[in-house]
C-alpha cells in the first residue's frame, strides 16, 4: 500500500487538520507517513492544501506531482487538482462548493454535499470529517475505529465539547461514502 493524498480547499475548512488527523492515525497504526503543508502566499486567501503520503514502506519523496487521491473542498481546488490526479485515482469532491462537476473519465469520482451536511449537523466546520469518512470508504488506508480514537485524543479535554459533532460528521461521511457509489 502506498497512497499519495492531497487535501485542498479554503483556509478555515479544516483541510490541514484533517490531513494531520490522517497522519496521526497512520502513525497509530504503525504505518509510514509524511505530512506537508502548502504555505506561503497561498495560505492568505487562496487555496490551502496539504499532502499526506501513507505507505507500508519507508517514504522517499514526500512531494508528488500526481497524487493517487485528491480530497477537494472547493471549486478553485477542483479546477487546480482534477487534472493532476494519477489515472485510476480517486477524486472526492465537496459538491456543495462545486461550480462544474469533474470531467475526467479515468478516475473514481465521489461527490457529496459535505458543507450542506455539516450545516445540517450544526457546524459548517466539520465538513472535513465528512470528507475524510467518505474517502476512507473508497480507500481503506486506516481503520475507522483508529480515526475515532485518535480524534478524541487530539481534541483533548480542552476541545472535548467538539467530540460528539466531529464523530457524528465522520459517521455521516461514511454513510454518504457508502451510498455515493464511485462513478468510474
Amino acid at each position: 500500500m502506498h497512497e499519495e493524498i492531497i487535501f485542498a480547499g479554503f483556509g478555515g475548512q479544516g483541510v490541514m487538520f484533517v490531513g494531520q488527523l490522517l497522519a496521526y492515525t497512520a502513525l497509530a497504526e504503525e504505518k509510514h507517513v509524511t505530512w506537508i503543508p502548502s504555505y506561503g502566499p497561498e495560505m492568505r486567501g487562496g487555496t490551502a492544501n496539504c499532502t499526506v503520503v501513507v505507505s507500508d514502506e519507508p517514504i522517499g519523496s514526500p512531494v508528488c506531482k500526481h497524487p493517487s487521491v485528491a480530497v477537494i473542498f472547493n471549486n478553485p481546488s477542483l479546477e487546480k487538482y482534477e487534472a493532476m490526479v494519477t489515472p485510476g485515482g480517486l477524486l472526492v469532491v465537496n459538491s456543495s462548493m462545486m461550480v462544474h462537476p469533474p470531467t475526467r473519465t479515468d478516475l473514481e469520482v465521489v461527490m457529496l454535499p459535505a458543507t450542506a451536511t455539516a450545516s445540517e449537523i450544526g457546524d459548517v466546520r466539520v465538513s472535513n470529517m465528512i470528507m475524510l469518512g467518505a474517502m476512507l470508504i473508497h480507500r481503506a488506508l486506516v481503520d475507522r475505529a483508529t480515526v475515532e480514537h485518535v480524534l478524541i485524543e487530539k481534541l483533548g479535554t480542552r476541545k472535548a465539547h467538539l467530540q460528539a459533532i466531529n464523530l457524528t460528521a465522520f459517521e455521516r461521511g461514511i454513510t454518504l461514502g457508502q451510498t455515493q457509489q464511485a462513478s468510474v
Binding site: L27, H32, V33, T34, W35, I36, P37, I59, P62, V63
Partner: peptide, 10 residues
Amino acid sequence: DGLLGQMMEP
C-alpha cells in the same frame, strides 16, 4: 530547507 522544516513525520 523549508520543506523539511514544515514537514511532519514519525
